[in-house]
Amino acid sequence: MASPGVFARVPRLAGKTVSFLSAGHTQKSVLWLAGRQFITSTENSLQFRLDERTAHSSLDLFKKDTGVIYRMLGLDPSHVQDNPERFRDWAVVFADEKITGGRHYWEVTVKKSQEFRVGVAEALMSRDDCVGTSASSWVFGYAQRKWFAMTNNKMVPVTLVGKADRMGILLDFEAGLLGLVDIEKPRIVHAMRGRFKTPLCPAFGLWDGELLTHSGLTEPEGLK
């Protein structure tokens, strides 16, 4: 299985929740937890697992399908259940939820990996492509000790000091925004713009190590 490389074909209220009405009377909640303040709308809460039906044969799912590990040799593709949703040439896996609107936030923990991609892709994206190489996917990637944003096979460097072991992803469907979030600040390190018209899936590419997803989270307060 080919690796894409950089130029791929490549007041202190711990534990308390306070509800209020936002403009437009949508009920939201503010949660204080371990010194971090979050804000969320319950109607936009996104909970997902990874979809084994989409996983390339070199990827194994674990921890109740919330994590994925790369196997260098992987499985013989002929031994994997054949279905049209599975990625055939690239080590990519989608989440099992389709997003058609709203503002959503999730986080990713990466271990022992020097090459990965995280972001979103159209649910019907070609399974012969890699996330980031087509106009139907938007991702943040890490390779050769550098971060980049990528869509339609075009890369933009992302200035980020060192390699983060855990990062956040913010998606605002209507605004056409995908943000890479430094969860320690918290702040958006880099934002991508797109025209999201069809259902999107959280998408992940992994070429070594392992990756664990954290969904159903509240959005850190102050992200624009």
Rank of each mutant, 00 (worst) to 15 (best):
A2L: 12
P4F: 04
G5V: 06
F7I: 03
A8G: 10
R9S: 09
R12K: 12
T17R: 03
V18R: 01
G24N: 03
G24V: 01
H25W: 08
Q27M: 11
Q27I: 07
V30T: 06
L33G: 03
R36M: 03
R36K: 11
T40G: 06
T42W: 00
E43C: 01
E43Y: 02
N44Y: 01
N44H: 07
Q47Y: 04
H56M: 02
L61K: 09
K63G: 12
K64R: 07
K64S: 06
D65S: 12
D65P: 07
G67A: 14
V68G: 11
V68D: 13
I69E: 07
I69Q: 07
R71V: 09
L75S: 09
L75D: 10
L75E: 10
P77E: 08
Q81D: 15
E85T: 11
F87Y: 15
R88T: 15
A95H: 05
G101H: 05
G101C: 05
R103G: 00
W106L: 04
V108R: 09
V110R: 12
K111G: 06
K111D: 12
F116L: 04
R117I: 05
A121N: 04
E122R: 13
A123K: 09
S126M: 06
R127K: 14
D128P: 02
D129Q: 10
S136K: 13
W138C: 05
F140T: 04
Y142R: 12
Y142D: 15
A143I: 04
R145M: 10
K146T: 11
W147K: 03
F148V: 14
M150T: 08
N153T: 07
K154H: 15
V158W: 05
L160F: 15
G162Q: 05
K163W: 04
K163T: 03
G168R: 01
L170T: 03
F173I: 03
F173W: 14
A175Y: 02
L177F: 08
L180V: 05
L180R: 07
I183C: 03
I183Q: 03
H190K: 01
M192A: 04
M192Y: 05
R195H: 06
R195D: 04
F196P: 02
P199H: 07
C201A: 10
C201V: 09
A203Q: 12
F204E: 01
G205E: 11
G205W: 09
W207K: 06
D208T: 02
T213V: 10
T213F: 08
S215W: 02
L217E: 02
T218H: 00
T218V: 00
E219L: 02
P220V: 02
P220M: 08
E221A: 04
E221P: 01
G222R: 01
